[in-house]
Write a protein that binds this DNA or RNA. Structure first.
Length: 315
DNA sequence: CAGAAGACCTGCCTGC
DNA sequence: TGCAGGCAGGTCTTCT
């Protein structure tokens, strides 16, 4: 399952190998993978062919490549990619057999020692590609990691700043978590809040559970009840789990395989809560429990992450 | 408007 | 063996 750290590994790989190259041809093998592109597969193909990739940027799990179309000096649109649950962007030689679940093939201009094709592979088709106009971020800051200009694709404009974005401060995060748009108290549970990509982006189910475990918070704790220290701990935990995962997952990709395989070392070694139902909590030894949540699962320690904090006695 | 729920997908696993 | 059902889950749409 690609989450933010995996997406960043992919971004770095693409930045090194695809930036500056021109699209020589496009083949959409499964139209569902471009279903979010407004004009359909034929329009996607014709508009992408001949375009030059000028950068590779990312915000949360949205990735995009600004493209300059023939006659353009500056990119006005971008190839937007979301990996969904099972998406991969592979850089491979044309001679290599098509991988299982290959959905879109993008041919690239020749470059010394570099593979000729960018391949979008996606088993479950939750991910996809599309072409979108670039618009202003509105805040004057670069659109995301790898972006130099304050531009972002239309389809990612509603996505909040990334967990690893330096714009986050403890105070800003506290306000974002405890208050909704109009300054009203945010009544929903804290896990729903941090999974809301319009509040902070890049957090998925796994890292949400991990960060909540580190911060000793119950996932249903009403977001508006977080005290500044609690939201500060939570932000710190989010950044910590992302950065550690990035370190461990970022070591295992080679030049010909711009990879996301969902099996970074982090997943097997460092998870404290997610997927550990029935196993001992690393802090207190109580058994981690799995509970239904939002149609899926939440994992927590029933001792460290209680719904209500213990009342402190001053006697 | 905030929040909740369902839809979209395939492959793997379990139970009958 | 075969089949049904559960599970995984990010985002988009629809409903309250």
């Amino acid at each position: 399952m690609p989450e933010l750290p995996e997406a960043e590994v992919v971004r770095r790989g693409l930045d090194a190998w695809v930036r500056g190259r021109t699209v020589t041809g496009v083949e959409v093998l499964d139209a569902r993978s471009v279903r979010r592109h407004d004009g359909g597969a034929a329009d996607f193909t014709s508009r992408l062919a001949g375009a030059r990739v000028t950068a590779v940027a990312r915000r949360g799990k949205f990735m995009w490549m600004p493209i300059a179309r023939p006659g353009e000096t500056m990119p006005s649109s971008a190839l937007v990619a979301h990996l969904g649950m099972s998406g991969q962007l592979l850089l491979q030689d044309h001679e290599l057999p098509d991988p299982r679940h290959l959905r879109v093939r993008i041919g690239l201009s020749e470059a010394a020692g570099m593979p000729a094709e960018l391949r979008f592979v996606d088993q479950r088709i939750f991910g996809g590609l599309r072409l979108d106009p670039l618009i202003s971020t509105g805040d004057g800051l670069p659109g995301g990691f790898g972006a130099e200009d304050p531009l972002i694709p239309v389809s990612a404009h509603h996505i909040a700043r990334d967990v690893l974005d330096p714009v986050w401060t403890p105070r800003g995060f506290h306000r974002a978590v405890t208050q909704s748009a109009g300054g009203r108290p945010r009544m929903t549970g804290i896990k729903r809040a941090i999974l809301d990509q319009g509040l902070i982006s890049g957090v998925g189910n796994i890292y949400a559970d991990e960060a909540l475990w580190h911060a000793r918070l119950h996932y249903e704790k009403p977001a508006h009840t977080l005290r500044p220290k609690q939201s500060e701990d939570l932000l710190e935990a989010l950044i910590e789990v992302m950065e550690r995962s990035l370190e461990e997952g970022g070591t295992s990709f080679d030049s010909l395989y711009v990879n996301v395989n969902g099996e970074s070392g982090y997943f097997s070694r460092s998870l404290q809560a997610y997927g550990r139902a029935g196993q001992a909590c690393g802090r207190c030894g109580r058994l981690i429990v799995r509970e239904p949540f939002m149609g899926r699962s939440s994992y927590r320690c029933p001792h460290c992450q209680r719904r209500r904090r213990l009342q402190r006695s001053h006697s």
